[in-house]
Design a protein around this nucleic acid. Structure first.
Lengths: 196, 196
DNA sequence: TAACATACATACAGTATGTATGTAAATCAG
DNA sequence: CTGATTTACATACATACTGTATGTATGTTA
């Protein structure tokens, strides 16, 4: 080979990064692979060597973004020992993480449409949704939450936050909007809290 | 002209209906206009005469679906005089309406991606979201809801329901899932209720 | 060093959108 | 009633993009 393994890996990462930029700013459908490989000083042959097709490239980008946000959420949640506070921290971190750098377009707009709802949901469950669900189930076992369907709760919360992200992303004063959103979320969660 | 006005209108409606079927079953990106016009015994020329482009056709379909669901929601809400019950009725009707006949793919998956988030949100606000927001604001004025951002509440609820629809749609026992979802929604709304 | 694999480049085929142009029928003007 | 114009399409074509097949140089391994 012309290049050693790390060099090749860097090529792949570079393609992912460039693609990520294009996808976030122009949207999946409006991005041609030619633009991407041009910027990477490669040809489409190289791209198709490393990725199955356009969707495959998007999948790689999607995973990267999701992993990034997921880690940010976990990190924030871990800052507290109180289950309830962990949930709140995680929610806020998700809003913050998904809003920034227009991740939301990849995660929430193009993601479902390009990958298909089935694939999208599997990915979402694997990363962000799963940890949320586990947290909610844990809290149910601790009698902190009412004994209603954890699945429904998970999707309810997840959906609420996804939409809130897209709402927030449109405003310049995102800090304020995140506060407003968190107020609502906290109240809603209170409704699910088990009253002792 | 070869045809009178109603005849022309019927051509347009036929195209919208056929397109709707194709979009719901195959998704926007996997539908070629040729398939659609073939089924309508027309050519793409006809389609481009009545619609600006593929996106324009989708927009027409999207509007039709949204209007349909919106009317179903309004109708359900109007069955009660109690504001709180109206909200509950409306929420349930939305779940039912959006779930059926795979409307969800057009409304919630392809919609944002194809139209772009901007356009999608405008449409969504014009139809479904607007009535929800008005209802929430009304309830706030009646001191039924806590005085938190009505915007945030609207998006929160709307997002929750959207995601719930997509979750529910995957199950054969949708009636049960809708019940589960409504349980969670009602609890969450309780958290937003103003305690006298 | 010969066989093979890797990392690309190049060329091409297929398919889809969108546009420009053509045409028959219907309506309208006088 | 007849010529002009508009409507509702069809046809033909230009363009763009994806995906695939093939070629090639370079590195690796036996």
């Amino acid at each position: 080979m012309r290049k050693n393994k790390t060099e090749t890996e860097r090529t792949i990462q570079r393609l992912i990064e460039i693609a990520r930029n294009h996808f976030t700013t122009n949207g999946y459908a409006n991005v041609s692979l030619e633009e991407i490989v041009n910027e990477a000083d490669l040809t489409r042959g190289a791209l198709y060597h490393h990725f199955k097709n356009k969707k495959g490239l998007f999948l790689a980008v999607f995973e990267a973004v999701q992993k990034e946000v997921g880690e940010y959420v976990e990190e924030a949640a871990a800052k507290s020992n109180d289950s309830w506070q962990q949930l709140i921290n995680g929610c806020q971190a998700f809003l913050e993480g998904a809003v920034q750098t227009h991740n939301q377009r990849i995660l929430l707009v193009d993601g479902p449409a390009v990958l298909g709802w089935e694939t999208f949901r599997k990915m979402d469950e694997k990363y962000s949704m799963n940890s949320l669900k586990e947290q909610l189930q844990l809290m149910q076992e601790q009698n902190l939450l009412k004994p209603v369907s954890a699945d429904a709760m998970t999707h309810c919360l997840s959906g609420a936050m996804n939409e809130l992200v897209l709402w927030i992303a449109d405003y310049p004063d995102q800090k304020d909007k995140i506060k407003e959103a968190m107020m609502v979320l906290q109240h809603m969660l209170e409704g699910l809290r088990e009253n002792k």
